[in-house]
Amino acid sequence: MSEIAKKPRPEFRNLNLFTDVRTYRLPLAALVSILHRVSGMLLFLLLPFIVWLFDTSVSSEISFGKFTAAFNVGLGILPAWFIKLVVLALIWAYLHHLAAGVRHLVLDVTHRTTKDFGRHSAVATLAFSIVLTLILGAKLFGLY
Rank of each mutant, 00 (worst) to 15 (best):
R119Q: 00
I34C: 03
K84S: 04
G76L: 06
L26G: 00
D20S: 07
P79M: 09
I62F: 12
L75P: 01
Y24M: 07
V51T: 08
A29D: 11
K115N: 06
L134Y: 00
P79K: 07
S2V: 08
E11H: 10
L35G: 08
G137E: 11
G142E: 15
L90F: 06
T113K: 05
L143W: 09
I4E: 14
T19N: 14
H111P: 05
W92A: 01
A70E: 02
T19V: 14
S39F: 01
H96P: 02
I62T: 10
L90H: 12
R22K: 14
I91Y: 04
L85R: 03
L88N: 08
T56N: 04
L15M: 12
R9A: 11
L107A: 11
N14P: 00
R37N: 10
G142R: 15
A89C: 15
A89E: 09
P27G: 00
P48E: 11
L78D: 09
A124F: 04
I50V: 03
G142T: 15
L28D: 06
L126M: 14
S33F: 09
V87G: 06
F18D: 06
A80P: 04
V131A: 14
K6W: 10
L140N: 02
A138N: 08
P10D: 01
R119D: 00
F117E: 04
I135L: 09
L45M: 11
S2M: 09
F54W: 08
L132G: 02
P48G: 11
E3K: 09
D108V: 06
G118K: 10
T110F: 08
T19D: 14
T133G: 08
Y144G: 13
A127P: 04
A99Y: 03
L85Y: 03
Y144H: 13
R37H: 11
T19S: 14
V109D: 02
V131E: 12
L134C: 08
V21M: 15
S121I: 13
K139T: 06
I130G: 01
E61G: 13
L26A: 07
P27K: 05
V32H: 03
G101W: 15
W81V: 02
S57D: 02
T19E: 15
L47Y: 13
R22H: 12
I77S: 14
H104V: 05
V86P: 00
F18G: 01
V123F: 15
D116N: 13
I77K: 14
Y144N: 12
I34E: 04
T110W: 08
A30D: 07
S39D: 05
I34W: 04
H111W: 08
R112Y: 07
S33Y: 09
Y144S: 12
I91N: 06
V109M: 10
L95Q: 13
S59R: 09
A138G: 15
T113P: 00
H97C: 13
R13K: 14
H96W: 02
Y24H: 12
N72K: 11
H104W: 11
F82S: 01
F82Y: 03
A93F: 01
I91R: 07
H120D: 12
I62A: 13
V131W: 08
